[in-house]
């Protein structure tokens, strides 16, 4: 459905962030994109959604195709109209608008605005807590509720592909679990394809059908979650487990520090 072919992204004409990045997102699946801070995950999403331009970034090489159509030169609004919706990192709800107005803004590109009411109800069935607060300014919601609103806003646009940028950021573990369950439900019930960027590798691998690991602006490893979980490097660096499969204890940390094998 979505494929990135060898793309290169440069910020401010000098900073090379993505160095030949390739990625496939098949229809109807949840694909996870994992990686440390600064690996280029968010940049990848922005390259897809056309949000690079306001930050002085540019796709200088390669191509991004969505359903066979190149989209890497399109402005953001056209990308949204084609069915790709990015839920930005840090929630970014419209603080001074009410919950309901936030949802309406999410459905801005819809041609069938008469159905907005029905879809707002649909969002409320996924997130009943939003319904209780529909007339409140979104700025006063808790972090978890804001994240729910951010995802609900995406649903309002009826996208084919939702890109979630760190939905677990700054949330309590229980809430994170709840939100991931809902992401999974949305994927199954609405048949929405999902590209999930996460730091929380354990959770992301739980719900994903396929995962990519990114470092320094390129993909270093990819595979089914089960295979990745078996990989010694992934266990050590992303899941925090030792080779025996147990939680790492600082008592055992001695001189030998495992090095990443894929880098050299």
């Amino acid at each position: 459905m979505l494929s990135l072919n060898n793309i290169e992204v440069i910020y401010e004409d000098v900073i090379l962030v993505l160095k030949g990045m390739s990625l496939q997102v098949p229809d109807g699946q949840i694909v996870a994109l994992l990686g440390a801070n600064g690996a280029g995950k968010s940049t990848t999403l922005k390259a897809i959604s056309g949000l690079l331009k306001p930050e002085n970034g540019e796709v200088t090489d390669g191509s991004i195709e969505f359903q066979g159509e190149p989209i890497h030169t399109m402005p953001a609004e056209d990308v949204v109209r084609r069915g790709i919706f990015q839920v930005m990192e840090g929630r970014r709800v419209f603080e001074h608008l009410t919950v309901e107005e936030n949802l309406i803004a999410g459905g801005y590109t819809r041609a069938d605005r008469n159905n907005l009411k029905r879809d707002i109800e649909m969002v409320y069935t996924y997130f009943p807590r939003l319904k209780e607060r529909m007339k409140q300014a979104a700025g006063y919601l808790s972090g978890g509720e804001q994240q729910m609103l951010a995802i609900g806003r995406a649903l309002m646009a009826k996208p084919k592909l939702v890109m979630l940028d760190e939905p677990s950021l700054g949330l309590a573990p229980l809430l994170v679990q709840e939100i991931f369950d809902i992401i999974k439900r949305i994927n199954e019930e609405q048949n929405t394809t999902i590209l999930l960027v996460e730091q929380n590798a354990l959770l992301a691998l739980d719900i994903a059908h396929y995962a990519y690991i990114m470092e320094n602006g390129r993909i270093v490893m990819d595979g089914e979650p089960d295979n990745l979980r078996e990989n010694a490097d992934v266990r050590e660096f992303y899941l925090g487990l030792t080779e025996v499969g147990q939680r790492k204890s600082y008592r055992d940390v001695k001189h030998y520090k495992r090095r990443k094998r894929w880098l050299s």
Partner: peptide, 9 residues
């Protein structure tokens, strides 16, 4: 920017 991300021109 968030407005831009939901297709508002």
């Amino acid at each position: 920017q968030a407005a831009l991300s939901m297709g508002i021109s």
